[in-house]
Every structure is written in C-alpha cells, then in structure tokens.
C-alpha cells in the first residue's frame, strides 16, 4: 500500500497529461485514414480499451492465483478492485468496435471468433463480480470468484490469436513487436491513448484498493463489536 500511495499522484498526473495531449491529437490533428476516413479516430479508443480489457484480466487472474495459492489478501483485493474496471474497458471496446464496424464492415456485429471471444471475456468479468457478492461469507465468495477468474484465463489468449487461427471478419493485428502496418501519425495518438488508459487504470485501481481495504477493516470492526457486545451481555 505504501508503493501504491507513492505512485498514485504520478499515475493520476500522467493520466491527466496523456489525456490532455492525446485527445486533441486523436480527435483533431491526426490525419483521416485513406480508406476509413474519419472513423479511424474510433480506433484510438477501441484498441486501447481492448488492450486494457485483456491486461486487466491477466492482472485479475494473477491476483486470484496468488490469493488462492498463498492466501495473499492484498492480491485478492487487487483482483477484486480490478474487475469492474476491466469489465468497463471490455464493454467500451465492444461498443466502440460496433460503432466502427457498422460504417466500415457494414454490420454492427458478427459472431466471428474475435468478437465472440471478447464478448465471453465481458461475461466472465460480470460473472466474477456477481460471484464475489453471491455468498453470505465474503471469503467464500472471493474464493469462488478467484476460481472463475483462473478458469476464464484460457479465453484471453484465444481472443489474441483468434484472428490468426481462424478466418474472422475482424482484421489481424496491425501492431506487434516486430512489425507495424500503421503510419507514425496514427501510431502517436494510439500510443498516447493507450498510455492514458493505462495510467487511468492505475489511478482508479489505487482508489478502489483503498476502498476495499477499508471495507475489510469495517467488517472486522463490526465483527469484534458484535463479539464484544455478546461478551458484555454474557457478563452482565
């Protein structure tokens, strides 16, 4: 938590800065695409949201694994705090993708491997959130949700490689470590928005982890209060 408190102002500041620089470039100064025209601007939101959805899933799954194996309470809290943010980014990825697909592909939605596996990830996020609240004993809920997060992790590489393994309507990746099919003027807003989304996640994560920690403390305090009252009644 000390580390989290130390990076918090930096992450928040960087997020504001990256949005302030990235949004005008993404919306105004970057050029329209030779084929997609102005709709390429939707990609500056869609791609970072997709990347965040997957990254946060990996973070959530690792946190869940550490929680299940080593009973690391902090890792469990990070996973729990991440889930709604990851679900939101996945939803944004889907919505922005649909808004691009309608004019460009000619359809809002198709059931190809990429779109379907992304939708499954969104549902796993929702399932994780629902499962965590479904039990009387919060610890049991956390454990069940953590198991679901681990089961669902197989889906994330499927999302990534679906466009290579099967024929899909969705195009393959334009970017990898070794190649780029994107001109520099378009890479700049894309990377700025990715950075902004990443820093935004870190910022919100710290806030949410603090909140989850407090919730646990409140629970404990209530428990000991009840226990104390019962003890007092027994004596009285």
């Amino acid at each position: 938590m000390k580390i989290a408190n130390a990076i918090f102002p930096w992450a928040a500041g960087l997020a504001v800065l990256l949005f302030a620089v990235g949004l005008p470039i993404a919306l105004v100064t970057s050029p329209p695409d030779y084929q997609q025209g102005e709709t390429v601007r939707i990609l500056y939101l869609h791609v970072p949201a997709a990347v965040m959805g997957e990254m946060i899933y990996y973070a959530m799954a690792s946190g869940s694994a550490a929680y299940l194996i080593w009973r690391h309470p902090m890792a469990g809290l990070v996973a729990k705090a991440s889930a709604p943010v990851g679900a939101m980014f996945t939803a944004l990825c889907l919505i922005c993708g649909m808004l691009w697909g309608e004019p460009m592909w000619g359809t809002f939605w198709v059931w190809d491997a990429r779109l379907t596996s992304t939708l499954i990830m969104f549902f796993i996020y929702l399932g994780y959130i629902a499962l965590g609240d479904a039990f009387e004993d919060p610890e049991r809920g956390d454990r069940a949700a953590a198991i679901l997060a681990l089961v669902g992790v197989v889906n994330v590489p499927i999302i990534k490689f679906s466009v290579n393994w099967w024929n899909t309507l969705h195009q393959p990746a334009s970017l990898s470590l070794t190649k780029s099919n994107m001109s520099g003027e378009m890479l700049l807003p894309l990377f700025l928005m990715m950075g902004a989304y990443g820093m935004f996640y870190v910022t919100v994560l710290v806030i949410r982890v603090r909140s989850e920690l407090l919730a646990a403390k409140i629970r404990n305090a209530r428990m000991s209060q009840i226990a104390g009252n019962e003890a007092a009644q027994a004596i009285g």
Binding site: L27, P32, G37, E38, T39, R41, I42, L45, H46, A49, M88, A91, L92, I95, C96, L99, W100, E102, P103, F200
Partner: peptide
C-alpha cells in the same frame, strides 16, 4: 461532421469519456 461519420465517431468518444 467527421467526414459524414459524426454519428459513429462522437458517440464512441461520448460513451468512453462518460464511462471513465
């Protein structure tokens, strides 16, 4: 006008900023 794509580009930015 976004090159005629206003009804796709602006909702995408709107819903993203709103959600964040």
């Amino acid at each position: 006008d976004m090159g005629g794509y206003a009804r796709f580009v602006w909702p995408a930015y709107g819903v993203s900023l709103f959600s964040l």
